[in-house]
Nucleic acid binder design. Structure first.
Lengths: 149, 149
DNA sequence: CGTGTGGGTTGTAAAAAGCAACCCAGGTGG
DNA sequence: CCACCTGGGTTGCTTTTTACAACCCACACG
């Protein structure tokens, strides 16, 4: 998780990804959409490409020279639940006046998409209270003074 | 979503929340667990309290003066899918040598918990490719931006 | 009355973000 | 054939954030 945050946790990265999911691929479009500084955007795109979340691919519009755009890789695609979970939480607890500006729907069926937690035995949607953390593997030295429940 | 990131998007915030879900409540425990600077932690906790994600509640251990700890509010609890989605993505694409240090399981059943996307008509788990963004034009207050003559 | 402990607040240095200006290469128009 | 536009950046400088360490404070204990 710390590694995940090293890749996705910087200031504009999640917004870059969201725009990528919305279909934005080009530097200027991206910059207009999210409104961050150009050098920071360049840095974030480079970091994402370096980690394999985006791919920098050449394209050529008619009568133009070759330029580059950024596309989600499979690694990037799989970050979608993070985006949806964040949007959902924001819409629920920090609602924008007038409702959310955009929503994600099932292509074709048109119903709203949401993120939920499930266990591998199909026990239905879970909340944090239905779960517990389980430490694995080489646990470090025994912690002194365990917390009271 | 931008609002969500204003609350959760700062550098250590998500780790603070993760530790909160693991049961960490106190300043020093938190500081040891995530390893960030104390002033930054103090700032993050204050921000989270201010936004209603955590609550600062007094407690008193026997023979001690009153102190304060931080507990998840309902708003905080509902951020759990974000945490799980991030952990899952990190474990999948940036695996730690020796496997993930911890996993989240269904309390009782013990099976691993994961985040997934579903539509409201129970069409099963979705990927980003099964979805599309839908802009919502429903503006509550008349904003008359384009109709300016 | 000195020490320990939890929960912080300085103070200062290093890193990151923001902003505007500039660069570059190829295409277009005059 | 030169000026200018456009997409995709880079450079330089200023303002915010982070990081790290040191310190503070109120109480309990011995």
């Amino acid at each position: 998780m710390a590694h995940a945050l090293a890749v996705l946790g910087e200031r504009w990265t999640i917004l870059v990804l969201r725009e990528a999911f919305y279909g934005i691929r080009r530097f200027d479009e991206m910059q207009r959409a999210i409104g961050c500084a150009r050098n920071v955007l360049a840095d974030r795109l480079a970091t994402l490409v370096e980690h394999g979340v985006l791919a920098r691919v050449g394209y050529r519009d008619e009568g133009q020279r070759e330029r580059f755009e950024y596309r989600l890789t499979p690694m990037g695609f799989e970050a979608f639940p993070v985006i949806v979970a964040l949007m959902q939480w924001g819409d629920r607890w920090l609602p924008a006046p007038g409702g959310p500006p955009i929503e994600v729907v099932h292509r074709g069926c048109g119903a709203k998409v949401h993120a939920e937690l499930r266990c591998e035995q199909a026990h239905g949607a879970l909340t944090a209270r239905d779960t517990e953390p389980r430490p694995l593997g080489k646990v470090a030295a025994p912690k002194r003074k365990a917390a009271r429940s």
